Simulated scan of single mutants.
Amino acid sequence: MTTRIITSDGEALAVALDIARQLRPDSAVRDRERRLPHPELALITRSGLWGISVPKAYGGAGVSKVTLAKVIAIIAQADGSLGQIPQNHFYALEVLRVNGTPEQQQRLYAEVLAGRRFGNALAELGTKTANERTTRLSREGDGFRINGRKFYATGALYAQRIPTSVVDDQGVQHLAFVPADSPGLQVIDDWSGFGQRTTGSGSVVFDNVPVSAQDVVPFQSVFDRPTPVGPLAQILHAAIDTGIARAAYEDALHFVRTRSRPWVDSGVDQASDDPLTVKSFGQLAIRLHAAEALLERAGHYLDSARDDSTAETVAAASIAVAEARAISTEIALSAGTTLFELSGSQATLAEHNLDRHWRNARVHTLHDPVRWKYHAIGNYYLNEQNPPRRGTI
């Protein structure tokens, strides 16, 4: 498979818009039938979009975080599940940028530019908190063995490598870039969420899986010192929700213009002239534009933190991203619900599958609670308290 090498931010955005145009027509069918998007992911891979965050020094475009967030939002607008699948791919590449050795960076970045996709095996079920990890990394000779079970492993089903969070014998966390075809590794397609249905966010089981020492990158230290890894993870989530919100908004516009009937008391002939419907669209548009603006603003803060990572710049980026996450959560859910209020009963017919927008938003926005984003934001501005450094703020 020949993979394009994208070399600039402008090219990345142009390619994303072209790919989104091709993905959009069958998005409702893929969701309805839970049709796993292998051909679509191959299309995205060939386009070069999976490699846009590879630094220029290693042959990539090294795009800004503003551009990266926009690309994810564009793809998520076309298909919410496809927008989420590369989230942990880019997250792993950022961990590699921050903590990998030059040899690891050279080798793994080259794989990505050649068309290899990274999934993830980070979260686990049954632990006391969402951040706790029990999957073990045990020394064996010059390498290691991994034992454990993961869930919410978005993208692992489609990946050639599965970056996996593991804990060594000293209780220190690492990220192991495990080849997906390793003996003892099993990816299970058991994701049954009612939204984001084709993300492949199921289980990964490690039964004495071998991993080379050269494929293990320090992970815990990413959060022990100021780095932009945490807010990078979060801005991608905000971009996914913003894209889902834009999709719901655009579908609502189209449905009201072409199919909906005005309410009998409105005194107008077209639903698009109903004054209360017009007002509601105005409210949606303002909040959507605010979400998109805050997403771009957060990207600028994150770019600053990447260029100069201090406690202050990383905290400012984390808060800017938290603001984008808070409003993107709300508008994604609101747009998915208001679509039906404005479009009417016809919009609920299964043939349209318009409920996928709300289902996708509801499932994805549960990644981490928005109520704690407001707490972090308020504490930062009111009490000058920096937020904790981790991937969930």
Rank of each mutant, 00 (worst) to 15 (best):
S8I: 10
F194W: 10
L43F: 03
R225C: 03
Q385T: 11
F177C: 00
R287Q: 09
E124I: 02
L185T: 04
Q87N: 13
I327K: 04
I72V: 04
D142M: 15
S47F: 01
Q77T: 13
T129F: 14
K65H: 13
Q87T: 07
E351K: 15
R246A: 07
T310M: 00
D303S: 01
L236P: 02
L125N: 14
H367K: 08
A350D: 10
V29S: 14
R136W: 11
A14R: 05
V205H: 13
R225V: 06
T127R: 15
L284K: 07
L382T: 14
H237V: 15
V95F: 06
R32D: 06
A16R: 00
I327H: 05
P387R: 02
A57H: 08
P102V: 08
R21A: 12
S345M: 15
T338Q: 11
Q170P: 11
L96C: 09
G299Q: 03
V167R: 10
A16E: 00
R24I: 14
A238K: 07
G267Y: 11
V66A: 01
T313K: 01
V167A: 10
S221W: 02
A114S: 15
E323V: 08
F90P: 01
F223Q: 03
Q196E: 09
G80L: 02
Q173V: 12
A76F: 00
Q234P: 09
L232V: 06
N379I: 15
W191L: 05
H364T: 10
G171Y: 08
E94S: 01
H89W: 01
E33S: 13
F177N: 00
S272M: 07
T101A: 06
Q186V: 12
I5F: 07
